[in-house]
Design a binder for these strands. Structure first.
Lengths: 210, 210
DNA sequence: GGCTGTGAAACATTTCACAGCA
DNA sequence: TGCTGTGAAATGTTTCACAGCC
């Protein structure tokens, strides 16, 4: 795995960046610097691993002191593509879609939830946690107008594939899929799958051998 | 990483078992056997990796033919601790809790959603998707009476730690936490964290460099 | 003295490639 | 012939341990 400048950070490292960022955000300006030990303790990572990660990012610490919190925050945001705000559309205004719209963590990091999209006309026009519910038919124009970069699929599994194809057609390049279906899409669309049942099964595995 | 018998399967392998199981479940008895190539294609894993995983589980295939679907299904279920049904409690009857109660994927694998727990007395006594909403005060007795093995925390972040400690006190040994807080619990409780915002940030990372 | 930065070792995981069996 | 099972190599990731700097 390459290091230094900016490119080619390992997947394992990338997966830890949001954790580091979360801890720094929670610090709330009470500390100017943080040591690898402290950052490690707050994130369930080893100190050596923290140092290795930050060195991969090319971020310098100060020996005897630690890492500058504000500089590191900026770097992590930049690295995660959160410099400008990132527009997000949530597809499906059922319980899950509404839960996601309510979920403060998105706004807290630089995401802007532009809309909830549904085909149920009785829902369209209302809003949830300040997020307007709009017709799925409006998505194509909204993607451009509201600068939507990522779509979150929160529909029933039965329609997820169809909806995802429609979403991909609007030019949205990234999809986070919560429906328990493995989406098959054309090249060029980045899909990430979150399967709630998978997490539960893994937990069950570790539970069953104790 | 050890292999063979039953113990000491690597974490990476464990993380793939639910995927394999999901594919086999979706087959619906239309195939008696499946090759590593087909199983690989359906799960976004390489064929060599599938073969290695199954060999770690000590599961034998038939050369020139493939793996017996039904036998493999049983093995995966057993391996994941899904032989008897596993009782699950969802803590928090907000949008997320209700979404999880609605989510069919749990029942589909061998989980039994025993109840939704909340402190809001106006909700208690009603039900969601056939799951009764009960008072958090009843959890202690229900854990024993309804044989609850896993608790899913779907409360606001602000109360998650407090609720988790309470839950841990009931003897539930495994917690799946959806609140965006890193829980600190005593030894002996297995905690698994799902952070929706983390997934979105990782997607954002890969989006930003294309 | 405290903490970073990093070679080198250890460990984990994946892939290659092919022998061997049905 | 088609596909598994697996050594061996390659690759990826973490940890150790300590020199070096503030």
């Amino acid at each position: 795995m390459p290091d230094g400048g900016d490119r080619g950070i390992s997947r394992a490292t990338v997966a830890r960046l949001p954790r580091y960022l979360g801890v720094l955000d929670d610090l709330g300006g009470h500390q100017a610097t943080i040591s690898s030990d402290d950052l490690a303790a707050a994130t369930d990572v080893t100190a050596a691993n923290v140092r290795r990660d930050l060195s991969h990012l090319g971020f310098p610490g100060v020996r005897g002191v630690g890492y500058e919190v504000e500089r590191l925050r900026s770097l992590l945001r930049r690295e995660l593509g959160l410099t400008a705000d990132v527009g997000v559309a949530i597809i499906g205004a059922g319980n899950l879609g509404r839960a996601l719209a309510n979920y403060g963590g998105f706004r807290r990091r630089g995401f802007r939830v532009a809309g909830l999209y549904d085909i149920d006309v009785t829902k369209v026009g209302t809003e949830v946690a300040g997020v307007p519910i709009r017709s799925l038919a409006d998505l194509d124009t909204d993607v451009v107008a509201a600068d939507i970069a990522i779509a979150i699929i929160a529909t029933p599994a039965t329609v997820a594939q169809e909806v995802a194809e429609r979403v991909a057609g609007t030019g949205v390049g990234s999809i986070l899929n919560f429906a328990p279906v493995r989406l098959r899409l054309s090249e060029g669309v980045e899909v990430r799958q979150v399967d709630l049942s998978t997490e539960l099964q893994i937990l069950s595995y570790y539970r069953s051998r104790r």
